[in-house]
Nucleic acid binder design. Structure first.
Lengths: 201, 201
DNA sequence: CATTTTTCTTATCTTTTGTTAACGTTTTGA
DNA sequence: TCAAAACGTTAACAAAAGATAAGAAAAATG
């Protein structure tokens, strides 16, 4: 995808949250950086500060932690979704997880400094703060739902819910990553799948 | 606590995130509502829209869901912490959980309309948006950590970590609530505690 | 296109958790 | 103050999940 098209995707994404006129866009757009991430390359790594928040305009990524030498996948992001190692980006502390491209991926990003510039800008600052707030609120709600699912649902219930709602993830992602995402082992997910098969058959 | 002292606590809380001068405070403070919640009374209930976000100036609350007639406690909030059924407050959709006073509790709150007024205000809007953003980011990080703990740690590890860091919760909260918070049953937590006792003894 | 590598399932065994119930203790509230 | 409710622990059993290993199928890679 060419750079202009990519950058315009960022504008579309912002406009999901706040309206943005051309004058405002002229201020924001020069702050953006377009980058490419080859499959298996990392957007973020443990021990390093994540300096960017980005929009995936093409491709997909996987979030994972490494514990006792094992990868534990926690999340995925696809086209038209934001990505960042949020805690690291927001606090400036080193991150704890990898964000790795599942396929060749194109990203339009703001670095931390540019983001702060945008927030502080006399013309677009108020609007950008609102954008930042609405984005944070959106992900807050996602996380709230996820925590609730861990507290109130069994792994099997979580998987069934994912079957209903999780379109893209289920098609494009290996099962053992999904198992991690659900908080269980791949072997356990395989057993759950067999239980469900038997019931519905 | 008298109303003025309570309201000033709200100002102190805002100033943890953004500076606020007297003129700005004169605009914000009239939007606040002070309320009291007797022990066991609900701040939020499933099926009802949570219309307020509040600061606990005295007391504490418990968040819980009811599944199959059983209460599952997901979180606690204490003095000088914000409370809301965020998803409901932010989206206007009916909430899914109870927020209930653990003791007689005093709350300084903004209702949704007042919050939107503050965000849109020509003088304090930018600052309030930033406050809202920083608060959402703060809780986003809390939730991110919590999800990670479910994915990468065993219940026993989660409990050990809570023992290290969870000061107030451990002193003031019954164990079966803590078990729920950790995603396990009270019986299971009791067994974990015995295992830990044996090792450290 | 051949060969690694990855992915998924299955089996076995162990460990942990859930469930239910009982018991003594503490707290609550009428 | 006294009865009822709530709380924490323990036991016994069932159900589920983790660990490990093996094997077949599918996909990736040179």
């Amino acid at each position: 995808m060419d750079t202009l098209t990519a950058i315009n995707k960022f504008r579309e994404h912002v406009e999901l949250y706040v309206p943005m006129n051309d004058a405002e866009w002229q201020i924001l757009s020069p702050l953006l950086e377009v980058s490419h991430l080859k499959k298996k390359k990392n957007f973020a790594e443990p021990g390093k500060v994540c300096t960017q928040i980005g929009l995936i305009v093409k491709g997909s990524v996987r979030y994972f932690n490494v514990k006792d030498g094992e990868e534990i996948t926690g999340y995925f992001s696809f086209e038209n979704e934001l990505l960042s190692s949020y805690k690291s980006f927001l606090t400036g502390a080193p991150g704890l997880n990898y964000i790795q491209a599942l396929e060749d991926t194109q990203i339009v990003a703001l670095n931390y400094k540019a983001m702060q510039q945008a927030y502080a800008h006399e013309l677009i600052g108020h609007k950008m703060e609102r954008f930042g707030r609405l984005v944070a609120e959106h992900y807050l709600i996602c996380y709230e739902d996820r925590v609730t699912s861990f507290l109130t649902q069994t792994p099997e219930e979580r998987y069934n819910k994912l079957l209903e709602t999780g379109g893209e993830v289920l098609q494009r992602i290996p099962q053992h990553y999904i198992a991690n995402f659900l908080g269980i082992t791949p072997v356990s997910l395989s057993r759950i799948r067999r239980r469900i098969m038997k019931i519905s058959a």
